[in-house]
């Protein structure tokens, strides 16, 4: 079946609602039954949605209350409203700057991961390189070792010998190395799903392989690239261990590291600062997601649609 056919079919059929017109010989009784079934399904659907929304929204409550509370606790309660916590946080010498650092690390890693993974995934999808599959799986498995605590000595010493201690570039490279296998794995799956016909036409018109990737393949897999970008940014955004091990100056530390400074000498959290910082720390990734989602359609698509 050609992709065009799929597109056509998608356009005019919507299962569950469309389909052939009702059989004129159907009795009112049967229609009533079908109507009742339909109603039950609708109710079921909305109940499911309500439960789902409650499940996913309920934990977020604390983030909406605690930052505005005069004396926040570890539980969510109606705040004794104040904006004082934000003032205190803005006075902190490292807090706001750390968000900028997070942005830098996340953007740097995101760009490297997307570009390198896209190129590699495309080549691996289109050209049969020897040992391709075994290589992919091995890398995927190895990435689980390196993200763990046990690898901290090798990672540190490697960065030390390369003079990458206290360098944001070092953090970006180490994080990129850890994220690339999964990114390639997911993107290759995408590339496998796109049709070859456009690339062939482009080739006939004399486009170079890089041009083909830029102008033909990238538009096709854009939602996939967007997804990988958001995924890698989110991974970097929350990563504490690598920047903590490799960076020394607090002026370069990302938010994940600075968040841990809001504890006392005895390890008690300063919840006023932590909750407020949590809110500011969360907003950029949520905004990014909303932006990407509205611009590129944030989801996986295999093949051509619509």
């Amino acid at each position: 079946m050609s992709t065009e056919a799929t597109t056509d079919l998608e356009k005019h059929s919507s299962p569950g609602r469309g389909g052939p017109p009702p059989d004129p010989s159907a009795t009112g009784h049967l229609a009533g039954l079908a109507g009742a079934r339909q109603a039950v399904r609708r109710i079921g659907f909305y109940v499911f949605c309500c439960l789902l929304l409650a499940f996913f929204a309920l934990p977020l409550l604390w983030l909406a209350c605690a930052p505005f509370d005069r004396t926040p606790t570890i539980t969510a309660s109606l705040p004794d409203f104040t904006l004082q916590n934000f003032d205190t946080l803005f006075d902190n010498p490292y807090a706001m700057r750390s968000l900028g650092n997070s942005l830098l690390l996340a953007a740097g890693t995101g760009v490297l991961v997307v570009v390198f993974a896209a190129l590699a995934a495309y080549a691996l999808s289109r050209v049969r390189l020897p040992g391709r599959d075994a290589l992919l799986y091995t890398l995927l498995l190895l990435s689980s070792i390196v993200t763990g605590t046990a690898a901290m000595v090798p990672l540190f010493n490697l960065a030390f010998e390369l003079h990458l201690i206290d360098s944001q570039l070092g953090v970006i490279l180490v994080l990129t190395g850890g994220l690339l296998p999964s990114a390639i794995f997911i993107l290759k799956d995408f590339m496998d799903g796109t049709p070859r016909s456009y690339e062939e036409s482009a080739q006939v018109f004399g486009a170079s392989p890089l041009q083909i990737v830029r102008h033909v393949v990238v538009p096709l897999v854009r939602p996939g690239l967007a997804t990988i970008a958001v995924w890698s940014v989110a991974q970097v955004w929350g990563n504490f261990l690598i920047p903590f091990l490799l960076l020394r100056s607090p002026e370069k530390s990302p938010a994940a590291v600075v968040m841990y400074t809001f504890y006392t000498e005895g390890g008690q959290p300063d919840l006023a600062l932590i909750s407020t910082f949590s809110l500011l720390y969360s907003l950029p990734v949520v905004l990014m997601f909303l932006l990407v989602s509205s611009r590129y359609g944030f989801r996986f698509h295999g093949g051509i649609k619509r």
Binding site: F160, F244, L245, V258, T261, Y263
Partner: peptide, 21 residues
């Protein structure tokens, strides 16, 4: 001055990493 603000165990580990190098 090289400040940090983390759990004591994490501080100790990172310091030891620096020292062993």
């Amino acid at each position: 001055f090289e400040p940090s603000g983390v759990d004591d165990e994490q501080f100790k580990s990172r310091l030891a990493l620096d020292l062993q190098s």
